[in-house]
Design a protein around this nucleic acid. Sequence first.
DNA 1: ATTTTTATTGCAATCGTTTGCGTTGACGAT
DNA 2: ATCGTCAACGCAAACGATTGCAATAAAAAT
Lengths: 342, 342
Amino acid sequence: MKIGQATIKDIARELNVSSSTVSRALKDYPGISDETKRKVKEVAEKLNYRPNAIALSLRKSRSFTIGVIIPEVVHFFFSTVISGIEEVASSRGYNVILSQTNESLTREKSSIDTMLSNQIDGFLVSFSKETTDFEHFSRLLDHGYPIIFFDRVPNIPHSINVMVDDYQGAYNATSHLISQGYNRIVHLAGPKNLSISKERERGYRDALSNHGIPIDPTLIVECAYGTSDEGFKITENLFKQLDKKPDGVFANNDIAAAGAILACKSLGYSVPNDVGVVGFSNWQFCSMIEPTLSSVSQPGFKMGLKATELLLDLIEKKLDPDTITEPIVLETELLIRNSSVK
Amino acid sequence: MKIGQATIKDIARELNVSSSTVSRALKDYPGISDETKRKVKEVAEKLNYRPNAIALSLRKSRSFTIGVIIPEVVHFFFSTVISGIEEVASSRGYNVILSQTNESLTREKSSIDTMLSNQIDGFLVSFSKETTDFEHFSRLLDHGYPIIFFDRVPNIPHSINVMVDDYQGAYNATSHLISQGYNRIVHLAGPKNLSISKERERGYRDALSNHGIPIDPTLIVECAYGTSDEGFKITENLFKQLDKKPDGVFANNDIAAAGAILACKSLGYSVPNDVGVVGFSNWQFCSMIEPTLSSVSQPGFKMGLKATELLLDLIEKKLDPDTITEPIVLETELLIRNSSVK
DNA sequence: ATTTTTATTGCAATCGTTTGCGTTGACGAT
DNA sequence: ATCGTCAACGCAAACGATTGCAATAAAAAT
């Protein structure tokens, strides 16, 4: 019982020609008679021949596979990006191999190692929360290894970054809250070491300043895990402890925002009448909760598309990495729903 | 500029030994002097040697890679399963290559083809909604190719299926609604050709029957896409058209259930006082919406773990496929929240 | 001193495909 | 009859690692 696929040799044997001839015939090389080509293709069809991609990879030192490294799969934004990645990759004939780090640096490094062993043609990376040192990426970049960073991007030489305009998104969200008459606005911030968190906080701060509202540091609280419970507790504490109650929340992410809404409700505050809330990422549930949650939509799918197109162009030498010096920034969109409109 | 990794030959050249010796030294074969082993390992370290997995795959006809085929990534349940898959695979030294079919049969078939070309060691499959003919899978199974089906499983010879107890989950959910005093319960059903849909509907029907409630076919509506909008419209229509208004909804999935809740609210019905609602899958948003949505939790992560363990055991011949004749059924859990308790 | 044993290592084939170069034979031209 | 030309195809190396089977040398046994 021959379980393996038919090879070029099988075709060659059947026709009493050499494997070179078969190889060339299959790819319509000149110098092979039409007669032979016909016969080869016929037998190939008959034997259900499929080229062995592994052998090809070995020969060409190219695997037509790209590696994707992300913190977690069970995440609306990231899974959306994956979807975009998969789209472009498969349409251009590449495979996608996936590894989630679960926010662990160790895991991140070992994933890279095994992917390198697998002769990955390039990487698409959004690094973990633990990653503060980028040595392991720089080394690859120095070797000319194709890498595109997305969303969570490093600030290192030669890195090509695709990101959303977190600053502008946060600025718009906060300005919107202000324009609706909220002015003691809490910011549930993200992990400090991620640039996206910093950018969002900066957008929040600038929006306040530009509208003449003083920045109160006690209203800015880091929400490191980004869970609903965390958002709930932090919000509850703030409302309990502060004499001057807040009247707005701009959260670094939707889940924390949802927690904040629940906290407000449990304390007897009405959202949006007493407290306005805006989240970030536009998870699916935003339009399903009560009140529906205003949020900054990140173009995850588009980001996946863009990052992958860049990577493949890089791999196929259609693009010179040195021509890209600025990050590619995708625009966000503020989706105004009920949670922030009085 | 040598961008490629160092190979065994590089080590061999550096030490003036043959590549065989290096290969053996690296794996601590007997018959290689300790002295040589030491030196080889030293140089390997120095050159930052990483074995070329592609070459190994070619030699062994094994790629240490498994292929995952799922309908979509941006889906709470499926992404959770992926997470479980990734967990086991990486801990046992396997790569995961991913392909989403977007519910298209054509895409499903072509994914299988390219994965076969890539000498995938085995498949983890949840097929598309379009798939009604399983020829393309049977052929592989007949060749002894390792495949595990999960969640959406076929009824074909020799297939190994991992599924959740959809019947019991639906039965429990419906029974729960009945015990809470609801008795004209709508069922928003799933796509007819998926066995999970049928099983859930069967659970719903049996629960009604066993509690002496007649089954009203007009209350069973297929919700093919499973979107919030679809759930909304179907529910709205039912309430508008029927003289005897329903007082409960058991939905095939949470998103449709969320749509149903919105519809009820918009029609002025109170959930849970007028209408009780239970969903399926326990998406994250269940505890964030108002009222919090009761749902049947599917053990997605566990399913990923189990399916992958089975597959790898199959691949590594630790498991004889013929010993598994019954599907592996994982238990669901009914999470009772506010949407179904008066 | 000769044979046998043992410890180390190398040769070469193999996995499936590609590809530079050489070979073969037919044919027309001289 | 000899040569050159050209179409059509085969040889063999290469990609990187593994492995059965020698081969070699030194050490042990006789």
